[in-house]
């Protein structure tokens, strides 16, 4: 009697063990197919120059410039994974003078490799935003990946004279939308 009960439960035990083998097909190599496509937005550059900064000692400065380092696209993660980038620029001029802004992309040897030009009308009492988006894709993208500095050159057109008490400013806001494919 005992033996029968034991056999019965040994059978059940075996059944439990056999159940371990029930499984659908799995393919762990699929990990190699992974493809992440994140899109990040971030600030790129910004400045605000008050009208008085165009006047030094009573004399107008018609050309001002700055050359900050912009080497983020040069970073190995960007070089390997960036597939598209959109650079957004928005300029708001509240000074009663027209400007041109030239942004030149410089490589590691300080050689210019790309430039963007903006024509900024004088302020006449109503908001006058100048905005543009520059998209870098395919071969154009290499320009961005080689860039290590950006030269900002502002030229002031002729017009009513500015003094150290003149109002208004010229303001630039710039953001970047970076598209990655990580495999």
């Amino acid at each position: 009697m005992k033996n029968t009960v034991f056999k019965k439960f040994s059978g059940l035990l075996l059944l439990v063990i056999v159940c371990f083998s029930c499984a659908s097909d799995l393919d762990f190599n699929q990990v190699n197919d992974v493809k992440l496509e994140p899109v990040f937005v971030s600030n790129l550059a910004s400045f605000e120059i008050p009208a008085k900064d165009f006047v030094t000692g009573g004399v107008e400065q018609n050309v001002i410039y700055a050359v900050p380092t912009v080497d983020i696209f040069n970073d190995s993660f960007f070089r390997n994974n960036l597939v598209k980038a959109g650079l957004d620029f928005e300029i708001n001029n509240t000074i009663n003078r027209a400007y041109t802004l030239e942004i030149t992309f410089l490589d590691v040897n300080d050689s210019p490799i790309h430039s963007i030009n903006f024509s900024i009308p004088a302020y006449t009492g109503t908001e006058n935003l100048v905005s543009t988006t520059e998209t870098f894709e395919n071969t154009q993208l290499n320009i961005l990946k080689r860039t290590t500095k950006m030269a900002f050159l502002l030229r002031m057109a002729s017009g009513p004279a500015l003094t150290e008490n003149s109002l208004g400013s010229i303001k630039l806001r710039s953001g970047v939308t970076a598209y990655f494919i990580i495999e």
């Binding site: 971030s42 600030n43 790129l44 550059a45 910004s46 400045f47 120059i49 900064d53 001002i64 410039y65 700055a66 050359v67 900050p68 380092t69 912009v70 080497d71 983020i72 500095k149 950006m150 900002f152 502002l154 710039s174 953001g175």
Partner: peptide, 15 residues
């Protein structure tokens, strides 16, 4: 982001 310094272009900022 980058803040170009127009008053002193010799100062190179690197955000």
């Amino acid at each position: 982001g980058v803040k170009p310094n127009f008053l002193d272009p010799s100062q190179v900022s690197d955000a």
